[in-house]
Simulated assay, not measured.
Amino acid sequence: MARRSGTSRAGVRAKLEARVLSVTQKLTLEADKRLKLASPVDDGDFRAAWQAETPEKVYQSGHVSNNIEYAVPLANGHSPQAPAGWIENELIAVVKGS
């Protein structure tokens, strides 16, 4: 099989890794945005407490968290504004691209 000139395995690998990192960063930021928009709002503290950490290296995970003390009850549907499972639904939508 003939190789294309200028295309090495290392070059292809570097491009793929750059793409993986870019997609992971975009998905993390999209999850953060969607979770903020879908958050139930009383005084806005819960919505404002979301924090996103995008990966800096390929194959690292992105993280979105909310450390406000009542985050778990809200995640479990304690608010009539957001039923149980709303976080999972938003994350599924991010992965599906909808």
Rank of each mutant, 00 (worst) to 15 (best):
Q81N: 02
A2Y: 12
S98F: 09
I92L: 09
D45P: 04
N67I: 03
P40T: 03
N67L: 11
V20W: 06
A18M: 08
A31V: 04
G97A: 08
R34Q: 15
R4K: 13
L27R: 04
L16S: 15
V95H: 06
Q60L: 07
A52S: 14
S5I: 14
L29G: 01
I87E: 04
W86I: 00
P40A: 03
G77T: 01
W86R: 00
P83R: 02
V95S: 04
G77Q: 00
S61Q: 13
S8A: 12
P83V: 02
E56Q: 15
S61F: 12
V72C: 07
N67R: 13
G11E: 15
S65F: 09
V64M: 02
E30K: 14
A93H: 07
V23H: 11
G85Y: 01
V64Y: 03
G62Q: 04
S8I: 14
Q25K: 13
G77H: 01
D43N: 14
S65Y: 09
R3N: 15
K15R: 15
L37Y: 11
A10P: 07
I87G: 03
L37H: 10
K33Y: 09
A93T: 06
S65A: 10
E56C: 10
S22C: 13
V12K: 10
G44E: 04
A93G: 09
A10T: 12
E56R: 15
K15S: 14
K26E: 02
D45S: 12
K26V: 02
A52N: 06
D42Q: 13
V41A: 00
